[in-house]
Each structure stands twice: as C-alpha cells, then as structure tokens.
Write a protein that binds this DNA or RNA. Sequence first.
DNA 1: GATGAATGAGCATTCATTCAT
DNA 2: AATGAATGAATGCTCATTCAT
Lengths: 227, 227, 227, 227
Amino acid sequence: MFITPIMNGCLLMQTLKDEVRKAILNAALTEFRRQGYQQASMRQIAQAAGITTGNIYRYYSNKEELFEAIVGPVYKMYKAYTTEYSQTMESSITADELSKRQYFVMVEKTIVGLFKTYSTELMILLNLSAGSQYENVRQELFTFTEAILIKVWATVREVSKEPLTEHDRTLAAMLAGTLVEGLSFIIRSHEEAAAIELLIDQLLDVYSTGITELLRKIKEGRNNDDA
Amino acid sequence: MFITPIMNGCLLMQTLKDEVRKAILNAALTEFRRQGYQQASMRQIAQAAGITTGNIYRYYSNKEELFEAIVGPVYKMYKAYTTEYSQTMESSITADELSKRQYFVMVEKTIVGLFKTYSTELMILLNLSAGSQYENVRQELFTFTEAILIKVWATVREVSKEPLTEHDRTLAAMLAGTLVEGLSFIIRSHEEAAAIELLIDQLLDVYSTGITELLRKIKEGRNNDDA
Amino acid sequence: MFITPIMNGCLLMQTLKDEVRKAILNAALTEFRRQGYQQASMRQIAQAAGITTGNIYRYYSNKEELFEAIVGPVYKMYKAYTTEYSQTMESSITADELSKRQYFVMVEKTIVGLFKTYSTELMILLNLSAGSQYENVRQELFTFTEAILIKVWATVREVSKEPLTEHDRTLAAMLAGTLVEGLSFIIRSHEEAAAIELLIDQLLDVYSTGITELLRKIKEGRNNDDA
Amino acid sequence: MFITPIMNGCLLMQTLKDEVRKAILNAALTEFRRQGYQQASMRQIAQAAGITTGNIYRYYSNKEELFEAIVGPVYKMYKAYTTEYSQTMESSITADELSKRQYFVMVEKTIVGLFKTYSTELMILLNLSAGSQYENVRQELFTFTEAILIKVWATVREVSKEPLTEHDRTLAAMLAGTLVEGLSFIIRSHEEAAAIELLIDQLLDVYSTGITELLRKIKEGRNNDDA
DNA sequence: GATGAATGAGCATTCATTCAT
DNA sequence: AATGAATGAATGCTCATTCAT
C-alpha cells in the first residue's frame, strides 16, 4: 500500500479490517452490556461501530456468532476451570482437607481469577445471555458454587455426626446464589482489575466470616427451622 | 351488536371492569416475571387474562402504563420508605444512635419488609425493568444502601477521629451492591413468603457478622490499601 | 352487528376475514406463478391482496405455509393417485393387460384428471417450487411416468424375448420427461378446463401414435444405437 | 501497491484479460445453469472464477450484462435463423413445397441445430432466464414454432379447400408448446451432445409421426372441433 | 365495553454493486 | 488491473398499538 504521509494524515483512509473488527467488538460489548443478547440490535451495533448494517456480517456471520466472539473464549476458560475443580473436589476431600477457608482459596484460584480478568464478558454471560446458547451459564455457575457449599456444610455436619438437613441445602443454595450475584455486581460496577480483585477478596472475606459464624451457630443447635 | 344507551345501562350484565383488571394484572405479573418488561408480549398477557388483545388497551393505555400499574405502587412505597429513612439518617445519627447492628434493624423495618411482602414486584423492578422508566431502580436502591453503609463507616471512623478513606467508600459501595444483588437473588429464586423471609434474615446475618468483623479489622489498622 | 343499509352502502366496511384470505390466496397464486416460490415476495403478495405486510401473517404463519395452502391439497391428491396407480401397476400387468394404449387411459384417469382441474397449482408445483418442500415433485412425477413407460417398453421387448437395452431406458426417460413437460405446458397456457382436457387428449394421442410407431421400428431392428 | 503509469505499461506482467474473461464466463455458465438468472450470485461466480467480487465488474458492468454475454450470442443466432426462416416461409410456401415432413427437416436445420450445439445456453435461455431481459424467449420460440405448425395445418386444409378452424390453431399452438417443452427437457436433462442429438431426433420422430397421423384423421373429417 | 383484524415500524439477514486503495 | 471492504435496499417476519365494528 502506498500512502504518502500527507495523504495518510489528511484524507480519510479506508478503515482497515482489524480496526473495524475491534470497533465491532467494542460496540457489541457495549450494546450487549446495555441491552442483553436478545434486545441488542445489530443495526445499533453497526452504527456505534461506525459501519453499515450489512458490513457487520462480513465479520460475524450472525448475531449469535458475534456474541460468541465476545463471551465464548471466556466461557471456555470458565468451563475448563470448573471441570478441573469439580474433579479435584470429588476425589479427595475430607473434613481436614477442606477447611471452610480453603474453599474460598480454591474458588479464588479458578473462577474468581476469571472474574477479575474478564469481568464485563462474565457479566454479560451471567446476566444478559437470555436467548443465546449461553443462557444457562448463570445456572451452571450457581449449581457449581452450590455444590461446593453443600460440600462445606456436609463437612461441618460430619464432625457432629449429623445428616444434612433440608434447610442446610436451602441455605447453601441461597448463599451460593447471592455470592454469585455479588461477584457479578462487582465486575459490573468496576472496570479496573486491581479494584475488582480487592473487592472480590473483601466480599469473600465477609462471606467467609459470616458463613463461618453462621455454621458455628448452626452447630450449636440454633438451627431450628426447616422448609 | 346494537345497544341503546338505555339497554346498555339497565339490562345487559357485562363482565365487571374490576375482574378484568385483576385478570390483566395477574397475567401481566406472570408475564413480566417470566420475560421482563421488554420481552413481555401484550398478546400473551391478553391471552393469559382471557381477553382480547385490543381490550387490554381500554384498561391500560400502553405497555408502560400496565407495567406501572404493577410495579408503581411498590415503587412508591419503596420511595416513601427510603425518603423518610434518608431524612432520619441525615438529621440525627451519632455513633451511639447507630450501632452497626441497628443499621440492619432499620433497613429491615423498611426496605426488607417491602422485599418480604412484595417480592415479585420488587424482583421485576430490580431485575426485569430494562427498557421501562424503572430501569434505574436497581441503581437507586444500590445508591440508597450505599449511603447507609457509608454512614456506618463514617460512624466507625469518627470514633477514631479518622476521615473516611476512598477505599472505605468503595468498600461500602461494593457491599451495598452485593447485598442488593443477594436480596434480588433470593426473591428471584423463591416464591414462598416465609422462605424468603428466613433467607433474607440469614443473608443479613451473614453480611452483618462479616461486615462487623471487617470493620473491626479495619479499625485495628489493617486497612492499608486503597484503589 | 348493527349496520344500517346506508352505512353499509356508503362507508367502508372492515373487510371480513374470509375475503381477505381469498384475496391473499389469489395474490399469492399470481405471485407464485410469476416469480416462483423463492423469488415471490410476501410484501408483494400483501400489496396485491390490498393488505399490509404484517397482516398476511395472521392468516399464514410464513411463506412456506402460504405456499402449502396453495399447492398442498393438490399435491396430496396427486400423491394419492400415483400411489394407488403404482400398486395396481406392480401387481397385475402382463403384455396382454397393458396394451400401449391402455397406459394412457390409466394415466388419464389419474394424473391427467388432476392436471385438468388444478392446472395452475400443478404448474407451480412442477415448475416453480424450487426452495420449498415441494421442489422434488417434478422429479417425482417424472420418475413415475418413466416407470410406466419402462413397463410398456418391457412388455414390448418381452414379446420378442429381448432384454431392455440401455437405450430403451434413456428413450423411455426422455419421452416421460417431455410428456410431463408437455402436460405442464398445456396447463400453463390455458385456463378453461374443457380446452385443457381436449388438448391433453390430443397430446396423448400424438405421443401414443408416435411411440407405438417408434416401438414398431425398434422391434423391426432399427434400434442399433446405444448411449 | 503504487504503480507509476510507466511501470504499469512496461514492466508488470499481469493476468491476461482474456483468461479472466473466460474464467468468468465459465463460472457464470455453471452458476446460471444451476441457479437461474435471478438466484445466481455474483459472489459465487467470482469465487468460482478465482477472482474477487469487485473485479468481475471490470469485465461485465452488471449481472444482466454478464448474462447477456453468455446467452446473447446464442440468442442472436437463434433470432437470425428464425427471422430468415420466417421470411422464407412467408414468401414461397405452397402445399407442394412444404410437405409435412419437410417442416421438421427445416426446423432441424435451424433451431434444432442450435439446440444441439448450444444446448446449455439455450437451456438457460428457455428455462432459467426469469427476471432478465430474456425471460420471454421461451414464449418467442413457442410463437415461432406455432407459426410453422399453423402453416403446416393451413397447407393441409388448403388441399381440401377448407379454412383453418379455431381448433386447428389451438392444436397447433399446443403441439408447438409441448414440443418446445420437450426440447427444453432434453437439453436440461443431458449434457452430452451426442445423446442430446439422438434424443431430439427421436422426439421429433414421435411428434412427426403422431402429428402426421393426427392430421390424416382430421382430414378424414373426424375433426369435430371445439372452442 | 369488547373484539380482533389491521397497521407499520422494527428486526436479523442477504446481496448486487461501488470505490478507495 | 485487481482487491475486498463497504454500502444500502431488499427480504421474511414480529409485535405494540389502533380502530371499525
């Protein structure tokens, strides 16, 4: 390509493919974050990217594929982590191995790390993917977190030789859910990785302390209610 | 059908307005809960209410107004509570008056009470109002909760004659946000009022304990990190 | 419905459902005949029917269904006839039973009758259904006609104890194909049932005579060429 | 790439225009045969020709012109033949000059010869030109063939000093149409010139024999004609 | 009051054509 | 000469809203 510096500076260059791709991804990220997958408009994305409606399809052959380009890679990482972690958890956990605190450490090394790095994408994945192939991810993450908490509960109950009550399960589910929501919130509200990391750590600290104390109370017998 | 005004007034028994209105509200509540404001279909609501598409517009002149009819009253109560509470908070709080625990008690008496009673409407308001005039309510609630937590923090700092740090604020914001998310999750995941109430209590307990402990640590000087 | 004669005569009545349905079918028939299934435009059909684009979907939920409404019934009849006829043919035919002429008589009672009655629909089915679920119908009819002609050829060959040559098959296929085309042409070019019937009869007469003579020549040994 | 006019003219060997042109024509022939004029995709043609989408427009300024390049020459020949033949036919034909058989001989020397040589182009012209300027060619060919058959009929009628009946005309039209369809079918169904030639000959034989016989019957007075 | 047919602007997607490079 | 990114009008289809009855 022959472009004199003057031409380059003064005239409109034809936008290069990669710039456009980035512009599309940028616009799409914004639009998906604002409207969610289903309500997002390809027209709007194109306009925000500064291109025409038709041109967007040169880069991504449909809305789903564009969505995939944004959240797909993050989902794959997330999936790899959870799969690996699930296996570890299944194989080797006893009351000693898995202290309540250790749970958070492990989670932190996997999912939470992802949260810190790809916060926006995960937020979209968790909150705004209805209608896409990813609409069950939030449920997946919830189920995964729930399984961990159930494990923790079971460990605690084991010590006192009691079975898990129905309420234990409900409680674990609730805490898993609210924890996931909390993490979602943090990544939704902040942009800077360092800030996100610190806040996640502190949220986990609050949950950890609170849950530990709650478990202690429950163990002391003040868990007198089931659904 | 040709009906003279007289016949109309005297002879024909027609479906009572109020029954229909209730049927619409019922159907709309269900639809909005399932699909959110934007994805909800007026056709679907009409059908579920057992009336025709057009008739719905005799009761509510558009989708927004129907949405308003469902979430508006709850929003007004919420607004009244928060306004009143904000004033109280502003005027008279000292370190003594507002113990850390007291905060939760007050919140519980206002917002949380609303959560327990109108959980579905609040859930819609907080989670499914994108595209409507209420789409910022979640943000509002967050701001409100944040203000309370900031107050709590300030109280704590006051004792040791220190000013609120930037990180204090960020932390308060995060905890407010995640708490709101947690409450949202609970009302999103459960239908029964009793279950919701219990879970909210326990979530608040976890937060309360965790935050108290966090504040204690901070007071002890181990809060050496800012964003 | 209360309509004074005056109102009825003077003001525009809301078009009744059935009128609209007919208008749509009419417009669609015209459009499909002119453009074929794939190139036909729903907008164009709507416009020709005097309604709006959206309204057409109240009557037919998509293009394929509208096409189906037009050609489907005719296809079903056609299918019933050919199926029944195929069975008859398979079970009982000998050289005596199936004279060359008889073939045409049988075909006439089945397919040709249909051709006479639903000429436009069949024309669309045979010539303009690419892209729809009916795109193979022409091939089907061709295969069916071919099978009959092969049968006739076989009968002739049998008399002289010769096997069917490859060229016999090619010839039968060609004649089947051109016959189908010829029938298609007739129904495409004429509207009146009586005229269509007479022409079909005469085309069959030409084919019958020509083929009979061709077969005679072939039998006399002047069929010394194969592909 | 920056190329001075001089460099451009002297040094760079570029793909020869004619190779590209041939590649385009080749690809276009294939695409038009497979998809027809309207459904054919310029992108697909370019790709098959191994060039870029835009470049195709340096050779043919639009789809219609490309189509023209493929079927135009064949159409011109066809037109020349039919024009010449029409004149011959008009000026000098008597019952003696134009025996019934002679008709087919003449047609064969003109149109049919074209069919045999440019079968693909003619097939496209006759079957797949909807939407282009050539969409009426099939009709033209039909009209031409019809004119010939009318002439034949007239000749036959002349002998017995009878005028042409309305039915004579309808019959001639039908036979002309179905013959054209038959020829179309053959060139649509086969690729090899030899096979096409043989089949066309045999189809004409069938028509010739059949029509001759039909004319004989008519002459013998069993022509009880309808509307 | 109620009906439901009709409207029309909106959506995702395709594709012949243009044009800066 | 050639590229291929970009355009924009068209397509099938949906849905909140209107209005004659």
